[in-house]
Design a protein around this nucleic acid. Structure first.
Lengths: 115, 115
DNA sequence: CTTGCCCCTGACACTAGTGTCAAGTTTTAC
DNA sequence: GTAAAACTTGACACTAGTGTCAGGGGCAAG
């Protein structure tokens, strides 16, 4: 599939897809003339990348844990697994914080509802 | 209290405190020479601001809901309350998304642990 | 009075992902 | 074969909160 199709399939702009490739997060074949050709599996990869971005991971951090995604259960993923666990912990802490904030907002809504 | 003390008390840089004031999120008295003097109550305000920033609210959005914070239960907060509810909903959706992402990361950790 | 520390404003830099434009090439459709 | 649509690289802009530096003023302790 070409970049326009991938963009349509994932909702990610072609600009961003090229950026992801530049950051080493996705890969593509090239036609003889240089146009990118993506495997079908890249769709779910891009979706997952979006999810990680939305969770606040940087492209650098994501690149660090790619071995855990691409070749699970191999020795070469020691540092990758470390990054993965660290990001999970960071995410858990952030969720806890957001849940508390949600409570604060709901208190505020209640206090403003008795009008 | 002066800006250095407020910075120490909140862990927010003086630079950021001046920025918050510029954005209309906090206010201060001034000494005749122009130095900022903060009320004690600004400490908790700044702490809450940090919380909202960390939840992804922009300073513009925060300013919109300040009426709900400063003068709860008044008519003038109709638009403010609307913003508040909208942000609460956005936050709830985001938390749900992050919880799902946490599950994905934990699946990934598990898949990489059987080495 | 002077030393040292704190404060003031204004300006510029940085990050990091994305938008957008330009100029040129390739593919597709008629 | 020609026109439209899609692709290429490269470059520059933007956001928004923060860091940092410059050049100047304020104020307390010695």
């Amino acid at each position: 599939m070409r970049i326009g199709e991938l963009a349509a399939a994932t909702g990610v702009s072609a600009r961003s897809l090229r950026y992801y490739e530049q950051q080493g997060l996705i890969s593509s074949e090239r036609t003889p003339s240089g146009q990118r050709i993506y495997a079908e599996s890249v769709v779910s990869r891009v979706t997952f990348l979006q999810r990680l971005f939305s969770a606040g991971l940087s492209s650098r951090t994501i690149r660090n844990l790619l071995p855990c995604i691409d070749t699970p259960s191999e020795e070469s993923t020691a540092a990758s697994l470390d990054t993965l666990v660290r990001e999970r912990d960071r995410l858990v802490a952030h969720i806890d914080d957001l849940v508390y904030t949600r409570g604060r907002l709901e208190q505020l809504i209640e206090a403003n509802l008795d009008s």
